[in-house]
Design a protein around this nucleic acid. Structure first.
Lengths: 204, 204, 204, 204
DNA sequence: TATGAATGAGCCTTCATTCAT
DNA sequence: TATGAATGAAGGCTCATTCAT
């Protein structure tokens, strides 16, 4: 008798095992065996549910991107509900990007591998592009409300997106990621303040 | 009779072939065969000159870091010779980080793989740390001359370093890297202007 | 569903294939391919069951030593059961050392390779030492009952052990091993007779 | 200008380097590089003088056998000159087989490898057979003068040859080869005494 | 639905040999 | 005569995939 609904459970377990394995061994060191062992299942199960190794890895990456996207959605819905200021909304976006999940070393290792692979894997490149654009347009949405000149708003969005990604990158690779992330979040918010101030001041 | 001076030639050829292979196939897809074929040599040559695959790859990464470092040194020496302003010196640093070599897709692919590997390879992690600190301290040197408060200077250096890295990252992964790099350079310089302005204004 | 009990079967098959390969090609000429081909399996199976080439070879050597040891145990148990004389017990030990298995050319080739490798492989050296001591102490046990002087008994054991090994060696390397083994067994027993006579005679 | 007589010098140096390498690394671990490095020459020289790796190794084995043979010849010539007794002559043969050169670990490692290879290499098998027969017939020569019955003399020669080889083998593989060799020599001579006594006694 | 035994392609490495100098 | 740079076949090992159960 087929156990109903067991598929999503297995898929989730395997994706989590994959992220854990990438954290522990890197993408290079991740094999079908490291994954299935972490999941407490047989090696054949991966082909069964994901068609192969490439399958789970892509699913794991998608999962990671989804997490980031969902976190963002929750924050933005909250922002809309509370009718926060554009600046406040920007701060919430920053927070989402430095959330616990994003700081976790399994996510970190996966992100870096993801970027490295995206260069040669069109499938991953597409996912990457979608994700990059999402951050940019979400930032742009608020910045447009703060900055009159459309081009300036665009530039500010691009800068802020780069600042966030760069901060995340340097934090992940630093000796003390936890401290680095905390500082990163603060400095990104400082940047928002600079923009706010730049908008309000008359004397420049 | 020993052919004198052939070793450095071969090493250079092999390093270039390695960078090309990483560009074409990624670090994962780079094998001793892809490298030696690109170099037009036999597979044995790699172990002969670099002790093994790991050897060439590390040498290639070192070469890439060296290029960046040398470019920076040239710029900074020039800056000292011309006695440029601190802001001007910062602009030169930015330019170095968006130089033609850094924009090349072989460098790009190698950088990304490098970051991904650094997480699990202590040897590479060390190289990465050295490089990250170099950018930060070079930025800090100029920023200290522009900003009185030491903590603020530190923060500005961290932000600028992240902005540069983030810009580079997003440019590399963008659909039109060439345009993205040009814009990235401009926006990084704009950030310098913001700092300059922040220093000079009285009304904040 | 896991096939139960297949592991010991495979291990046995692979050990036999290894012995056969050493017989055919020597230890030097024995590769993972010669073994797996003789076993009618794929090359990967060896790493799967023995961790690698070194693994099967050590297992094969252990198997060979075990065979010798087991044969000896059976003989000695029988000797105790029948309460045979010390001299008779010595003859049984000799017979064990020239048993069909020990005469087989696969065992012969393996023994010789084993000795050659033991010089540089501490692991094998240990096995060799254990085995050498076993023969010696088993001989000594009977000789002590026949010879009063402890030192003389020790010497006789050492001589007999050397005689057996030397006979085995020369037989294995001779043109007609079968005939040589038969003669070897006879001459070793003659040596026992000499000892018996030496003990009983009064006229020396 | 060709240096006259340099060939035999080079050959000797390379043979010695080969024996040293077999001592250090075993036959398996001996490569053209280990040999040429020990000889302080280039790797190409081996093919130049010996046609290849197999060539030097066979030459080294031949050298070893020659040494043993020459030692024996010297001893036997001396025996004839001094008109020693048959028993004394046997003792001299024993001594030659436990001479310093035979005890040296380079010789030991080479002998063992030699036996292991002889099983599969007809060329080496021939050399081995010649050498085995030489010891046997030299022993037989003296034993015939001591023992009337031809078959008994044959048997005694076979036993003594086996005893010598077995003693040598067990000594080489023992933990303390030097002590083992000393004892081996003594016990082999004891065996000669047994034969002498057996011949003289009337009561058997 | 799930297992894990078995496969074999592909990788890195070693090393005897060749050959231009 | 002698070198050692270069080759490439062959070896051991890893691991994604398959498939009978």
């Amino acid at each position: 008798m087929p156990k109903v609904g067991i598929e999503p459970i297995r898929r989730k377990q395997l994706i989590e095992a994959t992220l854990k394995s990438i954290e522990d061994n890197g993408l290079q060191g991740t094999t079908i065996n490291t994954i299935s062992r972490l999941a407490g299942m047989s090696s054949g199960i991966i082909s069964h549910y994901f068609g192969g190794k490439q399958g789970v890895i892509e699913a794991a990456i998608r999962h990671m991107l989804e997490q980031l996207k969902d976190g963002l959605l929750v924050q933005l819905r909250e922002a809309r509900r509370q009718q926060v200021t554009p600046a406040e909304r920007l701060r919430m976006i920053v927070e989402t990007n430095f959330t616990g999940f994003q700081r976790s070393s399994s996510t970190a290792a996966t992100w870096l591998s993801f970027w490295a692979s995206a260069v040669h894997d069109p499938q991953l490149a597409r996912l990457q592009a979608v994700n990059a654009r999402r951050l940019h347009s979400n930032l742009l949405y608020s910045l447009r409300q703060m900055i009159n000149d459309p081009q300036s708003a665009e530039d500010a969005a691009a800068s802020m997106a780069a600042l966030i990604d760069g901060m995340w990158l340097r934090s992940v690779l630093s000796r003390d990621p936890e401290a680095a992330f905390a500082r990163a979040e603060r400095l990104c918010k400082d940047y928002i303040d600079i923009i706010v101030r730049g908008v309000n001041q008359e004397c420049v």
